[in-house]
């Protein structure tokens, strides 16, 4: 099988107020259905080992976890190599029930923004309150980044990870570079 390569092949921008990195592909499985149903809860617990996230929550343990996307949608995050096995586990558990699990890893691009101005870089692009009080690690926000949909979450206080569609990866990278250009700090979230 050919090597999985991300859209921007690990591009890095580190001349600005925050470092922007295009990450290697991670495994993402989109799950839709009744989130309270045992046939979704059980396999997810088995695969990730984390609890089901609450509304707008993301529970990550290392590179594996579950994110709440909407009242009937979850995103399973796992290492790229584990997608096929995890998908099989899910499909077996779902059986004939009315639910859906689809591999969307190759449809997405993943970025990491890190540095003490990370929250500002995101705040310049998305209509989101990124203050440390309002946007804490453990919450995921689906929103727009300038003109395209994206979702991001805080990994720790100074690091955010962001997913968007692969087709707009270059656009999102350019946006983040512009928002992080040298001398552009606003110092709004000074804590």
């Amino acid at each position: 099988m050919s090597e999985p390569i991300s859209a921007l092949n690990g591009a890095v921008y580190n001349q600005g107020i925050a470092e922007v990195t295009a990450l290697d592909p991670i495994g993402m499985i989109s799950i839709r259905g009744d989130l309270a149903a045992g046939y979704l809860k059980k396999p997810l617990k088995k695969i990730t080992g984390v609890a089901m996230p609450d509304m707008r929550g993301i529970n990550l343990d290392g590179g594996t976890g579950v994110a709440w996307m909407s009242p009937d949608e979850l995103l399973l995050i796992c290492p790229y190599a584990d997608v096929a096995t995890n998908l099989e586990t899910l499909h077996k558990a779902i059986g004939t029930n009315h639910a859906l699990a689809v591999n969307v890893s190759d449809a997405r691009a993943v970025f990491r923004v890190t540095g003490k101005h990370t929250r500002e870089v995101l705040a310049k692009l998305a209509p989101v309150d990124t203050s440390p009080e309002a946007f804490t690690p453990g919450t995921i926000r689906r929103t727009r980044l300038a003109q395209v949909p994206a979702a991001f979450w805080m990994v720790d206080t100074d690091t955010a990870e962001l997913v968007c569609f692969r087709s707009v990866a270059q656009y999102v990278f350019d946006l983040l570079k512009t928002a992080a250009q040298p001398g552009s700090q606003v110092n709004y979230h000074r804590g």
Binding site: R56, S70, P71, P127, R141, R144
Partner: peptide, 11 residues
């Protein structure tokens, strides 16, 4: 009311 997010119109 579905996800509890308060956001401005463009979202």
């Amino acid at each position: 009311p579905n996800c509890g997010i308060t956001a401005e119109e463009t979202e």
